[in-house]
Design a binder for these strands. Structure first.
Lengths: 201, 201, 201, 201
DNA sequence: TATGAATGAGCGTTCATTCAT
DNA sequence: TATGAATGAACGCTCATTCAT
């Protein structure tokens, strides 16, 4: 039986750290190997291509997003609209923590890679679309609940587009936070997210 | 008043076409030269670096954005809130036209380059921030007018953040339109933009 | 009398299929392993090197050549000159059958590897020379018989060189068949082979 | 105006020396650059690809073959059949000269590359086919002349196939000469070439 | 003023092979 | 006996940029 090691995991973690920061073209395979402490020839034993490594990064990042952001909100007993605000506050806290360590504000990994590769890599682009539809799923659930609780003044048929609008707003906020390297953008923009749902009174 | 070569202009136009589509790292200097029909050695006579060419692209793209989107809206006699909607509709038309010619939906050039290079090139990043502040200026003007016309239910001190929220939403919509290669995103999301301003009734 | 893994055999068969088609450098060890369904680590348990696998391919291919081409001709009661023609016709049939299945015409495996590696791998080159001398042995036997049967006008001392000329012609025909991907080359060129032996009348 | 240099020519000459000796896969771009004394990044300024460099090598080698072998024979007043023999003798002399300097016998560059890449690179394969048809053109001319001078006993309609048989024989002889690293093969096999044309008496 | 020629560092990837288990 | 894991060197090629002319 062969040797066991965590090389694959180290590579994935390294990529999950560097790629969201500098983008797809901003990180080379060699650098990933150097930082992860694996030899250059080993990369392609562990992953079939740089593209597939990034797909794995997207999946891992989604897992983290779900575990640290969506699931805690989902299992809380916050009201639907408070869940939306909480989504922004949690995102803010995560970024603020990173930022306090001197690291740059990343914004949203999915938006960064989707925006960069939309016209260049359909495999990655599809994966980003797929993950965005999971975001929208949560948003739609919260807005539907708010609708049923009569917290918002919105015709029922506008719920899906409103969920999508929330996705757009979320990703736009993340992008601006990245460009201004300012984690507080998330908290300052939280109020706007609520207005998108058109709350009563 | 001698005859002037249009090489610089051709190069700039080529870059303004290719860079928003494929991003900074997605287009090489050599390809730009080939497409523009200029010799590789001439590039660095005309521009000091790829970075500076892209700065010029950003400026030119901003000029176009102002001329084709902001100025016509500004000089129209639309109500402030209708101006916000018109901003999305005009953006939608421009992208839909390109899309009907089989070209990919670009989203927002500033967001594309800002997102890609936020952690890698501060010169370009500053330029993007600068242009975004021009966007926000228009938005703030419209929202202020709406406030003064008593069209929106918003405390005065929330106007600047609301303008910024509108920028975030705008850029998020553009990003999602790019990732889904769907120009109609702009028109479907226009309604959300208005809600950000919290219109009365 | 324990059960024996057929991994070695599968690897050899895979190599005997891929190497003649694409040459030594055209097939990698990893691809051979993938296609044969063996693990990369096992390769070097089964064979000391890629070179030695190819040596085994050459030996196996020679076995097949002897069994399907030379031995049937040898045990037939064809006249010596008809044997030469039959050699080309049998070769033609084999290639035509492969070709009808959409596979490329291989020509002669020995020539392909000998030509590619003549200046690079003396072990393989020697093996090819050795096999070519077996070819020449058959040819010389047939020509000697034709000489004794007074079918050809050739001084006795020219027989060895004529056998060698027949080898050259054979390999040249195979090479041209490969390059033109045309199995019928073998049948169209059969007549020339006979003329090399200078038949009477 | 730019700098002038013979770098392209040096690279082509280096390739024309190394590629026929070791084959396409046997010589790397880096090695070609090192030997030619050009820097690795310059290769792709001078040639669009390794493939196209080899196409240039084939064209140059054909020029040389025509100038040093075919044209002198063509402009001689040898009889048609003597021309065939002369073709082998000239080829022999060229190889013997190289061989006396300790260099390996190359055989035929076209056959080496055609055989190696027949199933892998159709652009190179076509170029080889094209050059072979030029060979056949000369052979057919000589055989036709021999037919008209009544030097050979061959039905007129067999002339094209006989020319092709001569090509096969030529290439086979070259291949065997390469594999045995024996320049004299060409002279010893010359007689066989004549028999292919079925000379009278 | 303008450019043909060149450059060194780096790209993502594949190579035949080794080795601890 | 058999293999999963790994390796360093090399692969063909592209990068943004420089410079002599």
């Amino acid at each position: 039986m062969g040797r066991k090691s965590d090389a694959r995991e180290r590579l994935l973690e390294t990529a999950a750290r560097l790629v969201p920061e500098r983008g797809y073209h901003g990180v080379g395979v060699q650098e990933l190997c150097n930082v992860a402490g694996i030899k250059p020839g080993s990369f392609y034993y562990l992953f079939p291509s740089k593209q597939q490594l990034v797909i794995a990064v997207l999946e891992k990042t989604w897992e983290d997003t779900r575990n640290y952001i969506f699931t805690p909100i989902q299992t809380s007993n916050l009201s639907p609209l408070e869940k939306i605000r909480e989504f922004f506050m949690r995102t803010c806290h995560l970024h603020a923590h990173r930022s306090s360590e001197g690291k740059p504000v990343l914004g949203c990994t999915f938006a960064v890679l989707g925006g960069e590769l939309a016209t260049q890599d359909q495999v990655i682009n599809r994966k980003v679309q797929e993950i965005f539809s999971l975001f929208t799923g949560y948003f739609e659930e919260w807005i539907t609940q708010a609708y049923e609780d009569e917290l918002i003044a919105l015709p029922k048929e506008r719920i899906p587009d409103t969920a999508k609008a929330l996705l757009c707003y979320t990703e736009g906020v993340a992008l601006i936070a990245r460009i201004h390297n300012d984690a507080e953008t998330f908290s300052r923009m939280a109020e706007g997210a609520l207005r998108l749902a058109n709350p009563k009174k």
